[in-house]
């Protein structure tokens, strides 16, 4: 029973705040987590969760099938166990769709709803904001690049089809995380760059999908139909991340024929640089409270 002498009405209400304030790092972290939540539809109605959940599931299904088959018919797939980079190709469509959905949501929505202006009227600078956004998008994209591949490898390890020895296993896992992050960054920055140049989410999503598909169609047509030099295949942005992954895993069978490692890696770095420049200069041009 409550002691009547110690009872009091506790109603602080609004009051002046003179307490400590955290620095810009916490502000960046707050934007990061808010962006991750937004991308995944967390703290939003059910309909906002459908697309991310379905896309993420789509990225894990092949791993489930492979691991399931390895359990049901052990040994038959043992030849495939070293083909880890191939998984990045299998999930390519899911990753592309996820990019088309998430990047415009994270970038354009802030500009259309005025949140970008509110962010800049806080201690955040444009650089802080973009760092938080890149971090959030790459993290979310890792759900469809790093984690499914890890799931795939761990499944194989559990059924006895994984890499030989503890050292090899660690090396494969490290390579998967590294490669997955590169692939996540590749798709993220392209998605963000495209989302910088338009203010319509639907248009940005369509451009992102068209960008990847068109690059693959055009480069393959040029090389295989019009006898253009092979290095042009490096501009097929559907195949480039898979090719880079294959080179990291040293799996020659998945590499683009006739494209050297330096061209492949150089193209990837170039695409990342152009994307970053597009994002940075695009946001420098945006004025709030003009």
């Amino acid at each position: 029973m409550t002691d009547s002498t110690s009872a009091e009405i506790y109603d602080r209400g609004y009051r002046v705040y003179d307490g400590p304030r955290t620095g810009t790092g916490t502000a960046v972290k707050s934007v990061f987590f808010a962006s991750v939540q937004r991308a995944l539809g967390l703290r939003r109605k059910f309909r906002y969760k459908i697309a991310p959940v379905l896309t993420i599931m789509f990225a894990y299904i092949p791993a489930l099938i492979f691991v399931g088959l390895a359990i049901v018919i052990p040994g038959d797939l043992s030849g495939e166990t070293s083909d880890y980079s191939g998984y990045f190709g299998i999930t390519g469509i899911a990753v592309m769709l996820f990019t088309a959905f998430v990047a415009p949501e994270l970038m354009i929505n802030d500009r259309r709803t005025g949140m970008f202006g509110l962010y800049l009227s806080s201690p955040l600078e444009k650089l802080h904001y973009l760092v938080a956004k890149v971090g959030a998008l790459v993290s979310v994209m890792s759900l469809v690049t790093v984690l499914p591949s890890l799931f795939f490898v761990l499944g194989y390890i559990l059924v006895g089809n994984g890499p030989d020895g503890f050292g090899n296993t660690l090396e494969v896992i490290a390579k998967i995380i590294f490669t997955g992050l590169i692939v996540a960054m590749f798709y993220s920055l392209i998605g963000m760059a495209i989302s910088t140049v338009t203010n319509r989410q639907g248009v940005a999503s369509a451009i992102i999908i068209m960008f990847f598909l068109t690059s693959a169609f055009l480069t393959n047509s040029l090389v295989f139909e019009a006898d253009a030099p092979d290095w042009i295949l490096a501009l097929s942005f559907v195949e480039l991340p898979v090719d880079v992954a294959a080179r990291i895993f040293d799996e020659a069978q998945n590499q683009l024929d006739g494209v050297s490692t330096s061209v492949s890696m150089g193209t990837l770095v170039g695409v990342l640089a152009v994307s970053l420049a597009t994002i940075w200069f695009g946001y420098q041009r945006i004025e709030v409270t003009k």
């Binding site: 705040y17 307490g19 400590p20 304030r21 955290t22 620095g23 916490t26 502000a27 707050s30 934007v31 808010a34 703290r43 939003r44 109605k45 906002y48 929505n109 259309r112 709803t113 005025g114 949140m115 202006g117 509110l118 962010y119 009227s121 806080s122 201690p123 955040l124 409270t289």
Partner: peptide
């Protein structure tokens, strides 16, 4: 407080206000 009325429509008022308070340095 900006002039425009455009705020994220699908965010709860409390979530928005808390988020803005956080980025202004409040624990």
């Amino acid at each position: 407080s900006p002039e425009h009325h455009d705020l994220p429509t699908d965010v709860a008022a409390q979530d928005l206000v808390r988020h803005i308070a956080e980025i202004h340095g409040l624990p």
